[in-house]
Design a protein around this nucleic acid. Structure first.
Lengths: 238, 238
DNA sequence: TGTACATCAGTGAACGCGCGTTCACTGATGTAC
DNA sequence: TGTACATCAGTGAACGCGCGTTCACTGATGTAC
């Protein structure tokens, strides 16, 4: 079997290249498991190779350095989160804006609870000495685009309360980097959206990083309260 | 000079014990510096000892293990944050509840920006394999008590809007661990307070951990907007 | 005040460990003719 | 289809490194009489 002109260059055809993709993915999975035990700073290429049944130097055929494995883990984490959020949000009727926000917010928490160490890698303390390369930007945007799209749709449907009033010039300048990309929602909506978004991740981080111990008994119930408060009081969604 | 009966046992009298306190504190400072470069997971007793001009084994006279140094750093971090927040909030007229919230919230951010690595240690990803001992609880409570006191005072002065309405039984049960300690504010106020509190730390974490890059240009201006939104829309402070 | 003993900070060597990365190599797989 | 050569996954040894912790020790400081 040969590649026809149309097939993308990276589709594997030979046994060797199929094996390469599989092993690359397997090493990533093992890396993810180690993240859970030792944290990002303790991630060790030797340990991953060992568990894969390879000699320590062999892993360099797949990841040229420790930082490359870390980058792959971060990218795949953001992608996995994005898929969860997109899938959950897509199931809700397009005109149910509150429902779409709830679905997206719940998906963030559910994913984080299921993958606490990936969450910590993405949204916790930055790994010292690690500089995120460009490759990590695209999958980050995917997740937040879900919220932005809800805001855009709700704005066009006139389902966002503008009770909070217009926003000062200073704030408008502050949010300029996002606002210049999406011009449908008014500045106040974008600003409120960012407040709600960072509050959402604050809520999830508090739960996952142990700051709700001896504070909140039923985390799921409180989270529901929290995201409704944010939707109604902060975003003005109805 | 001798101890009179009244003097606390741990007040140093001899040159030796004074030196001990000083060196203990100096090692802590060096540890804090290393935190900034290598992160919590990379904190090394040998490196700290080296910088203090000691042989590596000597540090064991002061901190019996790596985890003990880490605990001391965490406790001193929470204390330093608590002092900043308490001091800033205390300067505001008692009847200016919004001003008190703003002062406390700003103090959290200011402290975090000035001590990003301590902040990461306290509010970021938990250190793998490290179990926080009881000693860390008291200083944590100090900071959040500032907010709770504002809520109590504002409730008694009837300066909190109850527009958000009463809270469901489920939510009341969820916040029971906190509510049973402070009975002045109604459950809805406590619940709203926790939402605002975790949103505040979410905002600070987003900024410090790099999630506002290419999103918010002027972070201070946006933070001001954010804490006002939280005060008005979420807590209902006037 | 002076002496004898106890306490304790700091030394230096050693333990066993794991790490990232390089390199020359072997042998299997893939490709061109 | 068969052969010669090129590619590349995986090996095993080695490099230089830093780590936490223990231990027997020296010598200065503090305490009791």
């Amino acid at each position: 079997m040969r590649n026809t002109g149309r097939v993308a260059k990276d589709v594997p055809t030979t046994a060797r290249s199929r094996a390469r993709l599989e092993i690359t993915a397997e090493l990533l999975d093992i890396g993810r498991k180690h993240l859970a035990v030792d944290g990002a700073a303790g991630l060790s290429l030797r340990a991953v190779a060992r568990e894969a049944g390879m000699v320590s130097s062999a892993i360099y055929r797949y990841y040229p350095s420790r930082d490359d494995l870390l980058t792959a883990l971060i990218v795949s984490g953001y992608e996995s989160l994005a898929v969860s959020v997109e899938t959950a949000e897509a199931k809700v009727k397009r005109s149910d804006f509150l429902g779409r926000w709830r679905a997206a917010a719940r998906a963030v928490r559910t994913w984080a609870v299921a993958n606490p160490h990936d969450y910590g890698l993405l949204y916790g303390t930055p790994v010292p000495g690690y500089q995120a390369p460009e490759a990590t930007i695209a999958p980050v945007v995917r997740t937040s685009s879900v919220l932005i799209q809800i805001l855009i749709d709700a704005t066009l449907a006139e389902r966002i309360d503008a009770t909070s009033g217009p926003v000062s010039g200073k704030v408008r300048a502050a949010i300029d980097p996002v606002a210049r990309i999406f011009d449908a929602p008014p500045p106040v909506t974008i600003a409120n959206g960012i407040v709600a978004w960072s509050a959402l991740f604050g809520a999830v981080s508090f739960e996952l990083f142990g700051h709700l111990n001896n504070v909140i008994a039923d985390r799921e119930a409180f989270f529901e309260f929290e995201i409704d408060r944010l939707a109604h009081q902060v975003i003005g969604l109805s």
